[in-house]
């Protein structure tokens, strides 16, 4: 049983028949649009005692956290608190950083993604990522979205590829804006459009999970609102983890929130609870703006 199993059937059926009873198999369409404020929500990802080091320096200390399936979880905390590091360790993007090592484990659907049998390339297809600064490839809008499906052979014909590109652009609300100029460079779009293009590119390979690293920090309020709307929409089919500096954003979009401070996970739980009655003084201090 590897994490990679079931690639073919991934649209409909989840993979996690690995004995973890909390993992639920359901097709995206059948899944309720908004779920759960209760603890019965199935868990998609689990981090256990995760520590990350950059060379000698430890950036993350024994983080253990559950990420619910098909919900939005927000990571908040002051700069340098390790939330981005944690996010990047969820799809092994930290592998690309020289001198970065880690201990502990990250389970997705019951499989440790740091296990030797896991193919990191396939892993990253299933766990997509959207970055702080929009990073469209220097290609046309169409080719940006088609890039992932092409390299993974997700489309068997030109028509099918067109279909995927259209669908993904439509889901991000970009199709109407760019339908006449699909073959212009993606870099010619505005910042907000570029970010939505990157999201369309990410969902084009139909991942299970989308990690977003401060996706709105380079955008203006209107573009931010559009991306937030999009996240609400995507949440029906995808598990979303977002790192944000903007506490209002975390409160607006997420069901769960985790607060990081100096490389440790201070507190996590239902968003409402974190923002209204935090347990820890540090969380209280951060959300009321005493530091950060």
């Amino acid at each position: 049983m590897t994490f990679l199993e079931g690639q073919a059937e991934r649209q409909g059926i989840a993979i996690g028949a690995s004995g973890d009873t909390r993992v639920r198999s359901a097709s995206p369409a059948a899944h309720p649009a908004t779920v759960a404020t209760s603890e019965e929500t199935p868990i998609k990802m689990t981090a256990r005692k995760l520590s990350v080091f950059y060379g000698e320096k430890q950036a993350l200390f024994d983080v253990s956290l559950d990420i619910p399936d098909r919900q939005i979880m927000a990571f908040i905390g002051p700069s340098g608190c390790g939330k981005s590091t944690f996010l990047r360790s969820l799809n092994r993007m930290n592998d690309t950083i020289a001198g970065c090592t880690m201990t502990g484990e990250v389970m997705v659907d019951g499989i440790n993604i740091y296990d030797r049998v896991v193919d990191v390339v396939e892993l990253r297809r299933r766990i997509g990522m959207v970055f702080q600064k929009p990073n469209p490839f220097p290609k046309s809008i169409y080719d940006n979205v088609a890039y992932g499906p092409r390299i993974h052979g997700l489309a068997s014909s030109k028509e099918e590829l067109d279909e995927i590109v259209q669908t993904c652009l439509a889901r991000t609300g970009l199709l109407d804006e760019v339908s006449t100029r699909l073959h212009e460079p993606g870099t010619s779009l505005s910042g907000g459009q570029q970010q939505r293009l990157c999201i369309a590119r990410a969902i084009a390979v139909s991942p299970d999970i989308i990690l977003m690293d401060e996706p709105c920090s380079a955008l203006d309020p209107i573009a931010t609102a559009r991306v937030e709307e999009l996240m609400q929409e995507l949440q029906k089919n995808y598990t979303i983890v977002i790192v944000t500096h903007n506490m209002q954003q975390a409160a607006r979009v997420s069901q769960r929130t985790a607060f990081f401070h100096l490389g440790t996970l201070v507190e996590w739980g239902m968003t409402e609870q974190i923002f209204t009655s935090p347990v820890d003084d540090r969380t209280q201090g951060y959300i009321t703006g005493r530091y950060g």
Partner: peptide, 27 residues
């Protein structure tokens, strides 16, 4: 070529060779 493009391609599950051929060399 900015690292953000390498990250972007990696996050889509592109192998290093695919990233080089289709993203880095054109750029």
């Amino acid at each position: 070529v900015p690292n953000s493009l390498r990250d972007g391609a990696a996050a889509l599950g592109a192998t290093q060779a695919e990233t080089i051929r289709q993203v880095l060399l054109p750029a």
